[in-house]
């Protein structure tokens, strides 16, 4: 692993809670690592697990999915489906040989700027320790 390895981590954040929390972290001038790039989605329920596969396939070193806390979903129940989908996806990824440290999901509310900061820091630290992700990227089969 390169000493100066800077992972690229993709984060899906719901517009109403986590994206707002991330904005609040900015308004509060909190500092966190530069490694995370946020994709804004209306609800964590909008995040298709296939987006995560796509990110790994393209070269993501880590992926983070964030939404409102259970019970706080702007759309009432969206995040309960998120929870099932990604609890399942995490297991399935691990089953397929992806280190669980590369995929994270967190509930972060609009007021939890500090939790956003801490989550990004923690995920970056974890992924850094794992090194660059090569899984899902080796194209060892025949090209056509």
């Amino acid at each position: 692993m390169a000493v100066d390895f800077e992972p690229k981590i993709l984060a899906f954040c719901c517009n109403w809670c986590t994206y707002t929390g991330a904005d609040l972290a900015g308004q509060s001038r909190m500092k966190y690592p530069e490694n995370v790039r946020v994709v804004r989605v209306p609800c964590s329920g909008r995040v298709n697990p296939q987006f995560i596969l796509r990110a790994f396939r393209r070269g993501a070193d880590g992926v983070l999915v964030c939404g409102c806390h259970p019970g706080d979903c702007h759309y009432a129940t969206g995040n309960y489906f998120t929870r099932r989908r990604f609890m399942l996806m995490r297991e399935l990824l691990e089953f397929n040989g992806v280190d669980p440290g590369r995929f994270h999901a967190r509930w972060i509310s609009g007021s939890e700027a500090a939790k956003f900061r801490d989550t990004v820091s923690e995920v970056t630290r974890t992924v850094k320790a794992l090194g660059p992700n090569e899984r899902f990227q080796e194209a060892s089969g025949e090209e056509s």
């Binding site: 298709n48 697990p49 296939q50 596969l53 796509r54 396939r57 399942l88 996806m89 399935l92 990824l93 397929n96 899902f136 990227q137 080796e138 194209a139 060892s140 089969g141 025949e142 090209e143 056509s144």
Partner: peptide, 23 residues
């Protein structure tokens, strides 16, 4: 959602996606 290219990585994406779709 995914490339039609046939290689281990894209085939793997298909495999996991299929599991998610029909599991």
């Amino acid at each position: 959602f995914q490339s039609k290219r046939q290689n281990a990585a894209d085939n793997r994406v298909f495999g996991v996606t299929r599991a998610f779709h029909v599991g």
